[in-house]
Design a protein around this nucleic acid. Structure first.
Lengths: 152, 152
DNA sequence: ACTCTCTGTGGATGCCATCGACCTGAGCCT
DNA sequence: AGGCTCAGGTCGATGGCATCCACAGAGAGT
């Protein structure tokens, strides 16, 4: 991970569909060299994938909620995690410091679906209680913060 | 937004670097047709961009925190938002229902940097108080939930 | 100094993006 | 019904890109 790798990462975080030729121009290397660097970043796990950023409401996922989970004392955390992982509505799952062991970000189409999700969560073994907060609007989300110094 | 558009969106949410030729094979259209459809999805705002998904710790952003903000009564929300927007550490910003008007997801390199960020937030005009919860680990994040029916 | 390795360049080749010309079917007006 | 118009498709051509390969040069270790 030298400065050029950081520049590549920054460029791809900004636009994952840049061609290798374009990346090469931006960082001042040849296209094959960039190809190899990006391949190594991928196989070493620095770059985990490439995702289109889609407006959620336009694909019927207009309701965003953040849900805190309090774990049962003596619950099997791994089992509970597997139960959570199966629910597609849960986009993100953080293990937190604090009373609420987990914080979930969930996305559903309607408030009714959110209600169903919460019911399912409360029935999940290991879950003692949940606390749900609804996002009224998303000001911005997953904004990539530049990390390579002054990249071209 | 017909079924083919939904398939394209799903495919690109899974791998934003798929070629138009490959997308065309997957949805059963020609490459130019897919090119035009994707172009329309972009210009209509359904697809907002393409981002590399990078392991944050590998670019020096190993600390994730969620920060709730209680607004001053009578504060100018728009001004406060602009002050928040300027802080690159804040990756996401949601306007919430509840006592805490805003919920921020912030990413920094060290606990010391998090401390500085919290101090800055508390000094920001319009901010009455903050409440910070630290993510000890990220189980998963920004997992795209499939939305097009059975896409190829 | 030799050599090993890592990382780069340059050239060649086949695939892909992209443009323009043309086709086809749905909807609608007369 | 006939025919206009338009949206959205296919096909073919062309130039750029991805990708493979052979080879070059810098640094480290012996």
């Amino acid at each position: 991970m030298d400065a050029i790798d950081l520049s590549l990462v920054d460029l791809l975080r900004g636009n994952a569909r840049l061609s290798y030729a374009e990346l090469a121009r931006q960082v001042g290397l040849s296209a094959p060299a960039v190809h190899e660097r990006v391949g190594k970043l991928e196989s070493s796990g620095v770059v985990r994938g490439y995702r289109a950023d889609v407006a959620p409401e336009s694909i019927g996922l207009g309701v965003t909620a953040l849900i805190g989970i309090v774990e049962d004392s003596g619950a099997d955390t791994d089992d509970m995690l597997e139960s959570l992982r199966v629910l597609p509505e849960i986009e993100s799952c953080y293990f937190m410091a604090g009373v609420e062991s987990f914080l979930l970000k969930a996305r559903v189409g309607t408030i009714a679906e959110l209600e169903q999700l919460i019911v399912r969560l409360n029935r999940t073994p290991g879950v003692a209680s949940t606390r749900t907060a609804i996002a009224l609007s998303t000001k911005w989300e997953n904004r990539p913060q530049p990390v390579g110094s002054p990249a071209a």
